[in-house]
Simulated assay, not measured.
Amino acid sequence: MFTIKKADYLFWTFMFLMTLLQLSDDLTFFGALIFSIAITLTLRIHVIYVINKLAKWHLTINKSPKFIIYTSLACIFTALILSLEGYIIVNLILSEKMGNSNEMVSLFFGMLMVSVLISGGSYSIELFKQNVESEKRHEELKNSVLESEIEHLRTQLSPHFTFNILNNLHFLIRKDKEEALELLSRYSKILRYYVYESQNKWIKLDDEISFLKHYFQLETDRSGEGLQISCQWNIPENQLLIIPFLLSTFVENAFKHVSAFTDKTNYINLHVFLKNESQLIMKIENSTDTVLNRTKKQGVGLTYVQKRLNLSYLKNYKLYIEPQENKYIVQLQLNLKR
């Protein structure tokens, strides 16, 4: 993986080689090598211990115009050191003559230009690093907030689901003993699944579908014979994951708002299938009375499920809710992960 640290090493290697190539025209290879090492090390110290610290001070503590003054003074000081190093290497180590004062002035301004360019580049890199770190902190904070909100919704969903279960218990005592025992067994499976799986952020799609089938059958049993119910399950074997108790809310909503009139055919049609191996499609349609439906207040279930979709599947789902004349259609397209 290419990192900023590796890029830093490559830059200073490139800087050393370019300096060596440039000085080889005027000095012997040994002299050019020593001078290139001196220039690279000095500029490296200049960047690490001066420019980077000034940049951090400017960016995080005090965004003051004095930064330009301090940086300029640092570049002048570094240029003087580089010029002095050049004079010592050429005149004392190589026993050659640097030349007249014009050459020293030219060397100084050349080193000053290099110092300024290196300082500007280092400041840009430090600014980039700070932006990356700031974005990373922002993303971590955002994820933390999302996790907290998701957890809050899950705690809200728990009493909502339990309330619906308790609200339906009166149905059991009105049935005969054998059917009541069967329904209680189904309730037991649903509640057991709910207790254990509600603590998980992600569960297997197959487990969620199994739960949904039990839940759908339970609602079917208590709805009576005056309701025509059709369900299709086309879910092949898979390794997909989904957030728990997402789909049952739509089933609950359909049974809750299905029309109760006896002078027409009342129905609920459910179709759940996989498309393109990882896209889950759920379509549920139920008959309803347009006039009565307008007066009903939307339950908390749909409100919670829409929030959960936004938090866990942002840009990975499409939810169509279409109230039509005497029928209500909900279609969910969900891109699942493995």
Rank of each mutant, 00 (worst) to 15 (best):
N316T: 00
N253T: 03
Q232W: 01
L181V: 05
D25Y: 09
I268C: 03
L141D: 11
I321W: 08
F14D: 06
V116N: 04
Q279G: 00
W57C: 00
Y320M: 13
L17G: 04
L184F: 01
L309S: 14
L212M: 06
L33A: 14
I51E: 13
M15W: 09
L181I: 10
F216W: 04
F67C: 08
L247H: 03
E85A: 13
L241N: 08
H58E: 12
I268V: 13
Y320P: 01
S278E: 14
L80H: 06
K66I: 15
L240W: 09
W12R: 12
H138G: 15
I81M: 11
K6Q: 09
L27P: 02
E197D: 04
M18G: 08
K213H: 06
N238E: 09
L183C: 01
I37Q: 00
N167E: 06
E103R: 14
N238D: 10
V195A: 02
N286C: 07
N276K: 10
K66R: 12
V116P: 01
N168L: 07
Y328V: 12
I39L: 08
H271A: 08
T28M: 01
L33Y: 08
L17E: 01
S188M: 00
A74E: 08
N91L: 04
N164R: 04
Y320Q: 13
S72Q: 01
A254N: 08
T290Y: 06
F261Q: 14
T303I: 07
A7V: 07
D289L: 02
V291Q: 06
N326E: 15
T288P: 07
L247V: 02
E252F: 00
Y193N: 01
L94M: 15
R154W: 02
F273K: 11
T155K: 15
I34M: 09
Q22K: 10
L274N: 01
L33G: 10
D289F: 02
L247I: 08
F245P: 01
N269H: 11
F211Y: 15
V330E: 15
S95P: 02
K189P: 01
L59H: 03
K204Y: 13
I93D: 03
L212K: 00
L314Q: 08
S115V: 05
T28G: 12
H271D: 14
S210I: 03
L227I: 07
E225L: 08
I37R: 00
T220L: 00
T60E: 10
T60P: 00
T288H: 12
L21N: 10
N164I: 12
I165F: 01
F77A: 15
N253S: 03
E126Y: 07
I125A: 13
L334I: 14
S72T: 09
K177S: 14
K5S: 05
K204R: 15
T290W: 07
I229Y: 03
I268L: 02
I39H: 03
M15D: 02
F161G: 04
